[in-house]
Write a protein that binds this DNA or RNA. Structure first.
Lengths: 349, 349
DNA sequence: TTTCAACACGAAAACGTTTGCGTAACGCAA
DNA sequence: TTGCGTTACGCAAACGTTTTCGTGTTGAAA
């Protein structure tokens, strides 16, 4: 087992100084053609590669991006990571991942673990618990220490950083608009409690779409699910709530669900109740994931372009990192909106 | 914007030496109660945290694990990462992720980027292209440089490292056994070409199950899909192939699919052909992912326990890392088999 | 012969830690 | 006064780089 070879070892072996070896490898003109070749040959033979940690210490940057997301077993978030990793790699950066598990504490701890030199900047999406508590001091402190953050999807406006979001309101309006133009008169929404910002915004889009078409919203058609029901254990409870919705509003002919799971569950329940999709009930959901594509009937969905969000976030962050070096701090932050688009499939007419 | 405070700054500010500060913070008995408190108070005030990179350089270990997987938008792999991150975090490690995208070159490059000091060891699952080319020199070299590897799921035996796998053969036998005991006489398998090791093993399990029950395998019931068809673009082609299978073998009353996508696609095609699930056709798939749980009918699947695989892998790796320190190199490698289990749902009787 | 570039290389500092060892100052016993 | 043991601290090395600056050796011009 040969350990990794260092400059020092090469230097000793070739009986020159460390600096000579370093310069030779970097093709410095200070070094004679002769020694340069000798050193390079030796380095190649022993497969020399500069030690990243030493470089990080010297250069005071790690060429590594920290990602903090609530969970990774999730179509949207993993798509975002794919996008981040893609451009990070292309631009010579590595990607280190922390999962907050939707917990405030884990989010804070994860950030602290990474903020002490391990990374150059963060890309993150805020945990639900953090949104609920509205405690953002860890973001502020990180930024104050000169470490830039890019937030995506779940953002909060008062933090001074770049942001990449989807236009949830507009996306929801597209979805509901599709139902309306498909002839639906009684459109229900299945959404989350309001503290989840995206749920709130999508609900807002639903209401605006109705208003635009002079349809009076009915409180009984708005089903706000306690968010914990997303975990698989509470599937029964979710089904029950949706069943109640349908039973007490038999006129429903369209459903807008703020995520795939709500949509497929609604379809399952509707079928049980004898409704035909899309003939007597049309369904549109948010998040164009694997369920939408492959369940039967396939779902008409609002695609969020997760990968694009990841790519944009990474580019924003790296741009800022590589700008900081030379220029003064540009304290102008961008908020990029990635357009959604509606993918029409079998669950609508 | 106050930059991160260092020992040197504290030392200068308090007019003591760097070593005094360091020792005071680590509660060394060499330091007087007085200075210790002064230093600790100051450090707390300025929120001092030791720089990870400097520690890594000094200790020659990074407390970071590198993960290389083919893709991340994938239920199984993201579950594995969840498991890895869980125990890594608990044991004080970070996790850095590289995606090979099933490409040999990206796998090699990713490993090289990380192997130069950024991490202490790898957990990985081999890219399909690598399996096809059977070129494993990058693994061997990494190991020779003293960096341990743990392979999971897609492994190759000749590499000297710990491995965590599922018993694909046994899992497949369970799946096919379920179909047989449910009364199926003509069971088809939808699998991948043989170079994908798991596809090959699951096919083997299928054959063994048939043999155990004295059923003669028929070549026409074995459909081997060219793997690229997993990408969504080629869904049509996949459907066509499956349709051909059904049409030329009308007696088929059971299908074993080696992944969820093949299973739901088979169901979709079968329905189009007028077959009822599970009455006239029963389906079992491998990989207990989101499709299995939430599609209609829900799928009976072989669960691989991805998270457990991740946890076990991380524990194996970290154990080895922390053993290397003191003891001699233990050159005894483990191969842990995580048991699968069959989850019965609506797609079987 | 003297002087001075040009050349080719080495020494050392710096990045931020930890730690073994040396030592000044002090008190106290001989 | 000498000697010795504590106590409380500082020095310096080490981890592996890069880079600035200094310097010894040439060869050639004056």
């Amino acid at each position: 087992m040969k350990r990794k070879v260092t400059l020092k070892q090469i230097a000793k072996e070739l009986d020159v100084s460390i600096s000579t070896v370093s310069k030779a490898l970097r093709n410095s003109i200070e070094i004679s053609e002769d020694t340069r070749q000798k050193v390079q040959a030796f380095a190649k033979l022993y497969n020399y590669r500069p030690n990243n940690i030493a470089l990080s210490l010297k250069n005071r940057k790690t060429k590594t991006i920290g990602i903090i997301i609530p969970e990774i077993v999730h179509y949207f978030f993993s798509k975002v990571i794919t996008g981040i990793e893609l451009v990070a790699n292309k631009r010579g950066y590595n990607v280190i991942v922390g999962l907050s598990n939707e917990s405030f504490d884990k989010e804070v701890i994860n950030m602290q673990m990474l903020a002490n030199g391990s990374i150059d900047g963060f890309i993150l999406s805020i945990a639900k618990e953090t949104l609920q508590q509205q405690d953002y001091h860890h973001f502020i402190e990180t930024i104050n220490q000169g470490m830039p953050i890019v937030m995506f999807d779940r953002v909060v406006n008062e933090i001074p950083c770049d942001k990449v979001i989807v236009d949830d309101v507009k996306g929801a309006k597209k979805a509901v608009g599709k139902l309306i133009s498909g002839g639906c008169k009684h459109i229900a929404i299945i959404t989350t409690k309001d503290y989840v910002s995206v749920g709130k915004l999508r609900t807002q889009g639903y209401l605006e779409a109705l208003e635009d078409h002079k349809i009076n919203p009915k409180a009984s058609l708005i089903l706000k699910i306690e968010d914990k029901l997303l975990s698989d254990d509470h599937l029964d409870k979710l089904e029950n709530e949706i069943e109640q919705l349908f039973k007490s509003n038999t006129a429903i002919d369209g459903v807008f669900a703020v995520n795939e799971l709500y949509a497929v569950t609604a379809i399952k329940v509707a079928r049980k109740l004898g409704l035909e999709i899309p003939k007597s009930l049309q369904v549109v959901s948010f998040t164009d994931g694997v369920l939408s594509k492959h369940s039967t009937p396939s779902l008409t969905t609002v695609s969020q372009h997760g990968q694009e969000i990841g790519e944009k976030s990474a580019n924003l962050l790296i741009n800022r990192l590589e700008l900081d070096e030379n220029d003064e701090d540009e304290e102008i932050f961008e908020t990029v909106v990635i357009e959604t688009n509606l993918i029409e499939r079998e669950s609508t007419k």
